[in-house]
Write a protein that binds this DNA or RNA. Structure first.
Lengths: 240, 240
DNA sequence: CGACTGGTTGATCTCCATCAATCCCTGTGG
DNA sequence: CCACAGGGATTGATGGAGATCAACCAGTCG
């Protein structure tokens, strides 16, 4: 089996059928013919560079987004103009669902590293959902999952110490890599300490200190943004 | 098939067509004939008494719920067994959407006062959505709204003082009464101080003290669970 | 090679959790 | 109907976790 010209692969993203994270995304369980209908909807853009915005708060809503590769941060602005991170999204995850109701994006989405996203125009997706029951169900499930995700954030934040929050945060990231069948005990944090602290409602310094402390205790190994979880059971215990 | 017993009418809640909160719920913008199809899906139960559970974590998911009148609290359990309130739901609001993905309720729902709810069996709702585009769209919108609602909670909690959180909480409740076209400057808090504090990630005493302080400053008037917001603009300023 | 961004570590102070005492609705039963 | 119990709410006193201020260090990029 010869593959003489790999060049065409450089910018063209894999179709849904070949996509690595297909099982986490909208096309799960779709029959082959429906999959290709779905595939036709998807708008695949050039990869986003780090720091590039996918959309900004106030922009008109066109469609929802799925990440093929990379990571995106979404954040809103509080009334006093402060930035509040509402989520980190990695490959296989779908986001932008918060804009469906108002048809305007209520928050900003920015790439944390080089990122490949698929845009799925929502009006067309709704149309196709009327034809394909599995797709309708997948859409419901993905939205439900997003609601649960945010509830988990509340559980993570609720009435807990900085130590617990950070332990839970690390375990949560780890789990999400595991969901993708990637190594889950060694990964690169795609966001800055600043972003983590903002997300967890802590000071940047507290996050840094806690990482150092976990390292001293032998729970993790952390070099800049590279983390290795060395003692899962102990870390879980810390997280309670 | 005889149904001689008119008793069943005693507790029958208004059909969707007559429902006070119809415009906030799934039937918005439905044509009359579709509305009656929708109406046939709805299961209307006996009103729940205060403290009664609508569902418990782990129970199989049957359908989503809409509140006609009353209030419900949803809460999850953290890994260490602590209770964490994830939301308060008042009339016109739809909840239980977090159970769609896993087909199991991830949290508990308990009535905070005498409450009338409609259950909407989800499988049937999905079926009907395939026929009625407006319904599909309403479902998407309601789920999107729920995602936004939870993001707002994050914004409310994020990096703010107890004073700000409580001001925001009051304004948020007020807004939700306004959405229902009810008086929004005078209402009864349907939940205990304990619940509020848990929800906002504060100590019960802090909530109580802050209420007293707002009262002293003339921002609100609070007697037990009855609140009157006296200075909207100032309260908004405090909330930033 | 400096300038800069992002991260670590240290010192201090403050806000809020915690502990504790008291008050006050609500509802229940004699 | 009233008294009494018990949970819900308020208020006070104290300590500590974590925010804030500040200095320093390490990659990285023009």
């Amino acid at each position: 089996m010869l593959k003489p010209n790999p060049i065409h692969l450089i910018h063209v993203k894999p179709a849904c059928e070949q996509c690595r994270v297909r099982e986490l995304c909208l096309p799960t369980n779709l029959k082959s013919q429906d999959l290709s209908l779905m595939d036709k909807l998807v708008v695949r853009r050039e990869p986003l560079a780090k720091g590039e915005f996918l959309y900004r708060a106030g922009e008109k809503f066109k469609g929802i987004y799925a990440i093929q590769d990379g990571a995106v941060k979404t954040y809103g602005l509080t009334v006093d103009g402060r930035e509040q991170v509402t989520g980190f999204h990695i490959s296989g995850e779908v986001f932008g669902l918060d804009a469906i109701d108002g048809e305007v994006h209520p928050c900003n989405a920015v790439a944390l590293e080089k990122t490949e996203v698929c845009q799925i125009p929502f009006a067309k997706l709704e149309e196709l959902s009327m034809e394909v029951p599995e797709l309708l169900h997948n859409l419901s499930r993905i939205m439900s999952r997003e609601i649960m995700r945010e509830q988990h954030v509340l559980l993570m934040l609720g009435g807990t110490s900085a130590e617990q929050r950070i332990a839970r945060f690390l375990l949560n990231m780890s789990q999400r890599y595991a969901d993708q069948k990637l190594v889950s005990d060694r990964f690169r944090l795609c966001m800055s300490r600043q972003d983590i602290s903002n997300y967890l409602g802590l000071a940047l310094e507290t996050v840094s200190r806690q990482f150092s402390q976990f390292q001293e205790r032998g729970l993790i190994d952390i070099q800049n943004r590279y983390v290795q979880i060395k003692q899962f059971s102990l870390l879980k215990q810390v997280a309670q």
